[in-house]
Nucleic acid binder design. Sequence first.
DNA 1: TAGGCCATCTGGTCCT
DNA 2: AGGACCAGATGGCCTA
Length: 389
Amino acid sequence: MYTAQKPVQKKSKGEQRTTQRTEQTRHLCAAMLTRLFSDPSLLPDMHKYSAWAEDSESEDSKTKDDEDHCRVGDDDMDVPDLRSSRAHSEIGGEDEDDEADEDEGEDGAEGDGPKKRGPKKRKMTPARIERSKLRRQKANSRERTRMHDLNSALDNLRKVVPCYSKTQKLSKIETLRLAKNYIWALSEILRSGKKPDLVSYVQTLCKGLSQPTTNLVAGCLQLNSRNFLTEQCPEGGRYPGSNSFSMHPYPYQCSRLSSPQYQSGSNSHPLRTQGYCSAYDSLYGGSGSPEYNSPEYEGPISPPVCINGNFSLKHQGTTSPEVAEKGYHYSMHYSGLAGSRPTAGHIYGSSGVRSSIHSENVSPYHDMHLHHERAPVPVYDELNAFFHN
DNA sequence: TAGGCCATCTGGTCCT
DNA sequence: AGGACCAGATGGCCTA
């Protein structure tokens, strides 16, 4: 009696862990695919997107509510399933024996009653059991491979979303969320044909992200914003290759950048030699865009990102140091936008103005790195062509 | 210690 | 029948 109920309690806890993430991921994927591919006209329409994003959130919550509701009703019905499932798990490979036993049990219980319809289960012979085990092993192996492929695809996705790090990976769900926002942000760029408002762009990018992820992105933003603030070539003019999308002057500043600690810095900051630059610059042709022939830089160019409303509101004055102290390891990466564009090399080159901005306070970002895979994302080429027409 | 995230196993369902 | 896909369950690892 109670042995059957104990797993239910355990299951409840397990569900809290599993179904939340599963449902979030599933609905996010479904919403993304449905919206993006079934109705392409939605793509460039950020107004619709805003509404949709809210819908998605409400759907998510609704789904969660529904799920919670179902869970209450499911408990009783799940008991037998759970019991059998646990039995299978603990007595791995004996499922067919269970079937055989079940058959016998049914036969015995029903006796002269109505016969169970459907194909009668054959008695399990040792050979069948062995084959069944083999099938299960093969299925497990395939499932592992499938999940590895899925994770590999997610890794590739991580590399083309705005905040990438090998050491501080975005979670699966956050990767999908950020990718969704990224797609919409890029779509809006294509639709409007002009440089987006930075604040709204970033708010779009960070919409729906968890606080930790927002902080991660915010850390990237700080790097970018430093670049925004210091985007001048050593000669006081533009970097070679910069175009009309130069970001001067920058009306937007990350709050953290207003603090003196980011106004004075060390020339020895390692980032200076690692090819980091404003992704916004990269995307919009601002000065200091990296180039692929830079010794340090080979990876794609990240989209523009900057301060997030949530981050700004919730963490002003507190989050930035916190982020700095957590030792988050992330980096901006760069899309292929600059791949065919002649630019000035990485902005943290040997010359001065930018260099002086960097502070040892950003040391948590020392290990930021650029990945060296350039994802063949078509939109990059489109954007590239667009911005250079 | 609780919660988040993840990998894995597993059974069910659908399709070829 | 077998493979692909999905979702539930579970346990491990990590972090606050």
